[in-house]
Each structure stands twice: as structure tokens, then as C-alpha cells.
Design a protein around this nucleic acid. Structure first.
Length: 297
DNA sequence: CTCGATCCCTGGACGC
DNA sequence: TGCGTCCAGGGATCGA
């Protein structure tokens, strides 16, 4: 599941491989996850990939201006979200296509950029000018760049649970379920804690831990827990450093207490019940909602 | 504003 | 071997 470190890894690989390459043609398979397939097919051929950047969990392929629009010089880009199972990698044309290959961009060097995504939870969109800028503005701060003041304001100004805030791309762009749990464990904050209730000290710690863990994960080329591969087709290594994610029932690395899993913000959340103290009222609230759920049946 | 529920989708795990 | 069922989860959306 590609989150910030995985997308950063792919972006770096693609930048190395694709910068300066020209797109000759576009072939689409199943296109139900593409914003406007017709626009993608029409706009991409003839464009040069200027650069590949990460923006939150998106890959941003910056493109040269289209023909006939030289005077407007509108910036344009192909946005690619890998969803849960998306892979984006250049392959030589002769190599057989993997199953679930939905987008193929033929390049001017004998290779093609292939988008493979079994579940099609990803998203692809060609955007330019004001629309592109508007789309990018919808997202919150990059967790690696956010200063303490901005970070604190984004977290403490909200009453939602910290897990929900970390996953909310309008608050911070790029954090997903795995790194949210890893960071909360390291910062000793319960996933159901309310953002507004966090102490100054905890907010500072959380920001530091986020940056430390994300940076470390980037160095190790991300986490490959199901099927993530980078632009070269290589898995990441950070899954070996996971401390809580996917470790229900196993001993906490700090205190040996059994790691537990609860649903917070609709997502599996792994935490240590001893290191990460539950907020007031949380246990009662959970019991109640579980009662409701079983009464329904 | 915040919550939970529901949908999208396929592959893998599991039970029989 | 082959079913059926459940689960994984990022994000959009909707009603409470």
C-alpha cells in the first residue's frame, strides 16, 4: 500500500528513468479509474515528461506544453495515485504485459510506461492550469516540510481523533494507515486521542517522529507488505522495521504487552494498550458502539 | 464539524 | 480441487 515513502521511492526512480522522455502514444485498458480517459488519450501524445515529483500520495508527471498552446504556457501534469495496488514502471516494449495493465504510454526510447493495478483503487488524471493548481491546493501540508507552528495548528485545531487527522489528506498529505500507526506507537499516543486534547509536548513529539520515520522509510525504499514494488520493480525494506502494524497479539517492542487492534476512523489501528493510554471515555464509547453493532443483527 | 456506514475492486486466506 | 465468505484499505459520498 503505497504511502508517502513508497510514492517518494517511485517518484525518484521515475525521475531518473523518465525525465526528458517523449510520449509517443497512449493505450488504455479498463479506464474506470481515470478522470477523463478521452482527455488523457488526446493530450499526452507528443508531450515530453519534464520531471516526476511526489505530491502527497500522488505522482506528478510534469509535462511540456501541448502543441498549439505554446503561447499560453499553461503548466500541465499527469497525476497518478497508486491506490492500494498500483504499480507504475517503465518496461521494454518486448516484455510481456502483466495482468491488470490498464495504461501504457509508449516512449521514444523503446520502452513504455505501464500502469498496473488489480484493484483499480488508483486514480489517473490529466490536469492543467487553474484546474491543476486547484486540485493540488485541496491537500494539506507535506509532513516532511510542515513547520512546528503549522503542524500544531492543523492537529490541535481539530476535535477529530488523531488517527483520523493523520489519515486526512486535507490535514497532512501522504500519511496512510501503516505509518500513522507506526508514528503513534513511537510517540506513545493512542490512535483515538482527540487532536485538540494533545499536549504541546505530544504534538512536538508526533511531528518529530513522523519526520524521522518517514525519512527512514524513504531511505529503505518504503514498505512492501503486500505487493508494493518501486519503479525498478524492487520491493522496499521498511516492513522489517514495523513495530506495531500487523502485529496484533504480538509483544510490544517496548513493554512486551500484547499489541491490540481496534477500528478507529474506519481503519484497523494497531497499538500498545500500555504504552498508548486510551483517552477518557474511549473504552465506554467503544463498548457502546459494539453493543449497537451486535443488536442490529 | 465529526461520525459511521457503504461502495468501489480483486486476490489471498480460510473453512468445509 | 473447488467452492463460498471474509478481509484488506484510500477515498468519495451520504445521512445522522
Amino acid at each position: 500500500m503505497p504511502e508517502l515513502p513508497e510514492v517518494e521511492t517511485v517518484a525518484r526512480g521515475l525521475q531518473r528513468e523518465l525525465a526528458g522522455r517523449k510520449i509517443l502514444s497512449v493505450t488504455l485498458g479498463k479506464a474506470d479509474f481515470i478522470d477523463d480517459p478521452g482527455t488523457v488519450e488526446r493530450e499526452l501524445p507528443g508531450r515530453t515528461i519534464l520531471s516526476v515529483e511526489r505530491y502527497g500520495k500522488f505522482l506528478l508527471l510534469r509535462l511540456s506544453a501541448g502543441e498549439g498552446t505554446e503561447e499560453t504556457k499553461e503548466e500541465s501534469a499527469l497525476l497518478v495515485h497508486l491506490g492500494m495496488t498500483g504499480l507504475l514502471m517503465p518496461r521494454v516494449v518486448s516484455e510481456p504485459q502483466a495482468k491488470h495493465t490498464h495504461v501504457v504510454l509508449l516512449l521514444d526510447d523503446g520502452r513504455e510506461l505501464r500502469y498496473i493495478d488489480p484493484r483499480r483503487f488508483g486514480r489517473i488524471a490529466y490536469l492543467e492550469g487553474e484546474v491543476l493548481r486547484g486540485e493540488l491546493q485541496r491537500f494539506g501540508a507535506d509532513p516532511l516540510e510542515a513547520g512546528l507552528a503549522e503542524f500544531a495548528q492543523r492537529i490541535r485545531g481539530r476535535r477529530a481523533r488523531i488517527k483520523a487527522l493523520l489519515l486526512d489528506q486535507k490535514v497532512l498529505r501522504g500519511v496512510g494507515n501503516i505509518y500513522a500507526d507506526e508514528c503513534l506507537w513511537k510517540a506513545k499516543i493512542h490512535p483515538a486521542a482527540l487532536g485538540a486534547r494533545l499536549k504541546t509536548r505530544q504534538v512536538e513529539e508526533l511531528r518529530a517522529v513522523l519526520q524521522e520515520i518517514l525519512q527512514k522509510a524513504i531511505v529503505l525504499r518504503g514498505s512492501s507488505i503486500s505487493d508494493f514494488l518501486d519503479a525498478e520493480g524492487l520491493p522496499g525494506e521498511y516492513q522489517r522495521h514495523h513495530r506495531v502494524y500487523g502485529r496484533e497479539g504480538k509483544a510490544c517492542f517496548r513493554c512486551k504487552t500484547a499489541i491490540r487492534r481496534v477500528i478507529v476512523a474506519g481503519r484497523s489501528s494497531y497499538f500498545c494498550p500500555k504504552c498508548q493510554a486510551a483517552p477518557r471515555g474511549w473504552k465506554k464509547k467503544r463498548a457502546k458502539s459494539r453493543q449497537r453493532a451486535s443488536a442490529k443483527k
